[in-house]
Amino acid sequence: MEELSEMKTPGETLVEIKNLNKKFDDTSVLKDISLDIHQGEVVVLLGPSGCGKSTLLRCINGLEKIQGGEIILEGEKLNEQTKRMHLIRQKIGMVFQSYDLFPHMTVLENIILGPRKAEKRAKKEVVKEAEELLQRVGLLDKKNAYPRQLSGGQKQRVAIVRALCMHPKIMLFDEVTAALDPEMVREVLDVMLKLAKDGMTMVIVTHEMQFAKAVADRIIFLDNGIIVEESDPQTFFTNPSTDRAKQFLNLFEFDAI
């Protein structure tokens, strides 16, 4: 725990978010958000439901139209609806809350679709890599299974592998364990911890506080579309500086009757 929560020396900036504004119709969901994400950093977004954390994640992948500001990935602006958007997205891996595997394809087909079609890589090489990655998450024996034959936790591990096989520069995780049974949560979080250790740049939205504490280099606490607090996990969880964050963290504590 100790060594993980130590602040890493920040690498160069990978994603720059400047004055991001996002509205759904007339409701502002993200108000003037500015945030830099560095190479190799694990950023965890926390906050109450509806605070805009998932929306922020979706904006980074260009899944939401934004109304102001800009998002820059490795020097390339991505808020324009450019024809290159699918190329930019290839550098960004994303795993969603709902199991998003393609139900008509086997596990292996799910994983190699992106590398084969979007990146046009050779089949043999992609299959080999997919199998190695599956081995790492302990699912090699499931490579010819269909998604509906897998448990929720297995599906999410496959979804992570599918994103990884594209060699993303950054991985986005949108409440990936929220729909899972408690016993399944652990196996998915373990895979994410391993990734973090290997130095993957990650932005994680989660409600698992213990996990956030363990994995994060930096906690961003959002409420009502603004960044309320930003600090290292140690400080955030033991000594949050804002009342709003204290209030939020208290939700996870229970008093004895």
Partner: peptide, 15 residues
């Protein structure tokens, strides 16, 4: 989310 995960993989709209 099926549309979105396809997009998130970097597939073009046609793909």
């Amino acid at each position: 989310h099926q549309y979105e995960s396809g997009k998130a993989l970097g597939l073009t709209t046609v793909q």
